[in-house]
Simulated scan of single mutants.
Amino acid sequence: MYMSFGKYKGEEIEEVFLKNPGYFKWMKEKGMTEKDEYFWLIEVIAGQYPEKFDWDIEIREGYKCWNCKKDLNIMLMFNPEKIYDDRHEVPVISECSYNKPDSILPIAEKFGVKLENRYSKTVNQKYIMHICPHCNMHQGDHSVVEDNHQKTKLLHQFRTRYIDNQWVILK
């Protein structure tokens, strides 16, 4: 997708973001968040470059392993720029399905969530996915973060930012 206005008109949005991410901050400050370019930033670019964005994290308990049926904790990532209507009434839809960065592993571990880079036959690739701590079986992102119909309980909720090669919890 291409910029349709301003000094970057005609340039790809991703290229503009990589060379001048502050331009999108300026767009937000000027109330231009309804523009297709800003929508593309939060819908597409954020998932491609998760370490360049803040994230709201939810740690939830009570997700049932598909294999052993025991409870495990899951971690969901939400883009704070997006509005999630009915997030707590409908199946949970989390960002970064199939493309969580390796750098998020320490923060998940800190909150009792087991994530590993494993191969999935369903999507025919490796990605960071939830692992049952009881039977060591992978839990596919489709079931855990895209179409979760299970009732879970919120344990922790916080915003995080990638600073100096690590995720930092913001106060």
Rank of each mutant, 00 (worst) to 15 (best):
Y2I: 15
F5Q: 11
F5L: 10
G6H: 11
G6E: 10
K7G: 08
Y8W: 13
K9P: 00
E11D: 14
E12G: 11
E15L: 07
E15W: 03
L18E: 14
L18T: 13
L18P: 09
N20A: 15
P21K: 11
G22C: 04
Y23E: 07
F24Q: 05
W26K: 13
W26E: 14
M27W: 08
E29T: 13
K30I: 06
K30P: 03
E34S: 14
K35S: 07
K35P: 01
E37G: 03
E37M: 04
Y38F: 15
F39L: 13
W40G: 02
I42S: 04
I42K: 09
E43C: 08
E43K: 11
I45W: 07
Q48I: 13
D54E: 14
W55E: 05
W55H: 06
D56W: 09
D56L: 13
I57K: 02
I57M: 08
Y63P: 02
Y63I: 09
K64T: 08
K69F: 13
L72I: 09
N73Q: 09
M75F: 08
L76A: 12
L76N: 10
L76W: 06
L76R: 05
M77P: 02
M77K: 05
F78C: 04
F78I: 04
N79A: 00
E81Y: 09
E81V: 00
K82R: 06
I83Y: 11
Y84M: 00
R87M: 14
R87N: 11
H88N: 15
H88Q: 15
P91T: 13
P91S: 14
P91L: 12
I93V: 15
E95K: 05
E95Q: 13
Y98D: 10
N99F: 13
I104T: 03
P106C: 12
I107T: 11
G112Q: 07
G112N: 06
G112I: 08
V113E: 00
K114F: 09
K114V: 12
K114N: 08
L115N: 05
E116S: 07
E116P: 01
E116G: 01
E116K: 07
K121Y: 00
T122C: 00
T122E: 06
V123E: 04
V123W: 04
N124A: 13
Q125T: 12
Q125K: 15
Q125I: 06
Q125E: 12
Q125L: 10
K126M: 12
Y127F: 14
I128Y: 01
M129V: 04
M129A: 07
I131L: 02
C132Q: 03
C132L: 08
P133Q: 08
H134T: 09
H134R: 02
C135N: 03
C135K: 00
C135R: 02
M137P: 00
M137C: 06
H138W: 00
Q139A: 03
Q139E: 10
Q139G: 02
G140V: 00
D141F: 02
D141I: 03
S143A: 13
S143W: 11
V144M: 04
V144S: 03
V145T: 14
V145I: 15
V145H: 03
E146R: 12
E146H: 08
D147E: 15
D147P: 01
N148A: 10
H149K: 14
H149Y: 14
L154A: 10
L155I: 12
Q157C: 07
F158D: 05
T160S: 07
R161Y: 00
I163S: 03
N165G: 05
Q166A: 15
W167M: 10
I169H: 10
I169P: 05
I169A: 09
K171E: 15
